[in-house]
Computed example of a mutant assay.
Amino acid sequence: MLQLISIVLLAGLLMAILVKGSGVSKYQEHDLEKQHILQKLDQLKAGLDHLCRHCPWDWTLFQGNCYLFSTFQKNWKESVTARKNMGAQLVVIKSNEGQEPNNDYGNEDCAVISNDGWNDISCLAMSFWICKKPVSPCST
């Protein structure tokens, strides 16, 4: 009977060692996989440095200029400050159609894009804004 209890205890001890040992190897395996992924990520980042991007990542290239479409609203004065900090200018309407505001309330000196095209509004109104700057040449 004592031998049977000893065998059962020994089997339990071996089982505990095996379970614990496999957990360590899984942890080590996970750590090695993480290191491999981080190495690949570093390689990809290094490759991106050699790509030619005429515009910053969050800007859009269109007809030889870079455009940033804001994701938050500001009034005209705040938009001017933001564009200065980015080294850009606010988009200016240059078409004849865009130069014909209706100025309904006598204080609509700014414009927004609406479903019907351009619409003039008060410069104190909060709106999304668009910045524009020239493309950057790629260094060789």
Rank of each mutant, 00 (worst) to 15 (best):
K34I: 12
Q35K: 11
Q35V: 05
H36Y: 11
H36T: 06
Q39W: 10
Q39L: 09
K40D: 13
K40L: 12
L41M: 11
L41H: 13
L41A: 12
D42N: 14
D42S: 15
Q43A: 11
L44K: 11
K45T: 06
A46E: 15
G47V: 04
G47C: 01
G47E: 15
G47H: 08
L48E: 15
D49E: 15
C52Q: 06
H54A: 04
C55F: 01
P56I: 01
W57I: 13
W57K: 10
D58W: 00
W59T: 13
W59R: 10
T60S: 08
L61G: 02
L61C: 04
L61E: 15
F62S: 15
Q63L: 08
Q63I: 03
C66I: 04
C66L: 08
Y67Q: 05
Y67C: 08
L68M: 04
S70P: 07
Q73N: 10
K74A: 08
N75L: 09
W76A: 09
E78Q: 15
S79D: 05
S79F: 02
A82C: 01
R83H: 02
K84P: 00
K84Q: 07
N85F: 03
N85R: 04
M86K: 06
M86F: 09
L90V: 08
L90T: 04
V91Q: 03
I93K: 01
I93P: 00
K94S: 11
N96P: 08
E97A: 09
E97I: 03
G98K: 05
E100G: 00
N102Q: 13
N102F: 00
N103I: 03
D104Q: 09
D104F: 09
G106W: 00
N107Y: 02
E108C: 08
C110T: 10
C110R: 08
C110F: 09
C110P: 00
V112R: 10
V112K: 09
V112I: 15
I113S: 03
N115H: 06
